[in-house]
């Protein structure tokens, strides 16, 4: 069984977010990067578990980005992926990334394509569904459980107020949510051995950009806490009604 796991590089979770002068991109000064946790902890680890359970198959990780992404890709190899592919293209919209991944996946035919449910930087949740559409395979989002029997997978996904369980035949794509697996911390030997695993750099395919970022804005700062005298219920009611507008 051939499994493809798509991994993104995202800012480390404690990064203080600021934007460049015209508010169109993240200010990357001082930013340290990690593998997107949804890709690493859930998508990649569940793919590895499946391969281990089957005792056969390959897990390939794929990233669209420049050479600066290689350390993040190497971490995926250290965790256990058999090989890695980097499509050599810096930047691009969600559709562009999906087109790059789909082109590679189509040429190399995979049984399952894994995505994290979203990246923790732009939170688009777009690339997985777009890729599936381009590959013309079913897409199951927000998967929290995945079992495979032969060519059929049983997937549980989160829905509003509950869960939904589906059956889907391979090939398909899914996006992984919390619960699908548990983080694996690579050991030092695995990290060292990862250098010997193949990291193939592939030229990007031609695409056309359809979107343009106009600007990013930070959420409004939280207002200060207001302390209300416990005896002054009228003031509390007034604040809840007029300012918080919850009653």
């Amino acid at each position: 069984m051939k499994l493809l796991v798509c991994v993104s590089k995202t800012p480390e979770t404690t990064t203080k977010i600021t934007f460049n002068g015209d508010q169109t991109a993240l200010d990357t000064s001082g930013v340290q990067y990690i593998m997107n946790p949804y890709d690493e902890w859930y998508a990649l680890v569940r793919a590895l578990e499946l391969k281990e359970a089957l005792g056969a198959g390959t897990v390939t990780i794929i990233n669209v980005g420049p050479a600066a992404n290689d350390p993040v890709i190497r971490k995926g190899l250290a965790i256990g992926a058999d090989e890695a592919v980097r499509i050599d293209k810096d930047g691009g919209s969600s559709l562009d990334v999906a087109q790059q991944i789909a082109a590679y996946a189509k040429e190399n035919s995979f049984d399952m394509v894994f995505f994290g449910k979203e990246t923790i930087d732009y939170n688009g949740s777009e690339v997985g569904a777009m890729t599936a559409e381009l590959l013309d395979v079913p897409f199951v989002s927000f998967a929290t459980k995945l079992e495979v029997e032969g060519n059929t997978a049983t997937i549980t996904r989160d829905i509003e107020g509950g869960e939904e369980t589906l059956e889907v035949a391979t090939p398909f794509a899914l996006s992984a949510a919390k619960g699908l697996a548990e983080q694996r911390i690579p050991n030092m030997r695995g990290i060292m051995m990862a250098k010997r695993k193949p990291l193939n750099v592939v030229a990007a395919v031609e695409t056309t950009n359809h979107t343009q970022v106009l600007s990013y804005d930070l959420p409004a700062e939280k207002s200060a806490v207001k302390l209300v005298d416990p005896e002054d219920m009228d003031e509390l009611v007034r604040l809840l009604s007029e300012e918080a507008k919850v009653i």
Partner: peptide, 18 residues
């Protein structure tokens, strides 16, 4: 000779996660 800075950084991050 078998080590490089990137690998060491991954190791340190792994120890930090642990």
């Amino acid at each position: 000779a078998d080590h490089d800075v990137d690998s060491i950084n991954i190791m340190l991050d792994a120890i930090k996660d642990f």
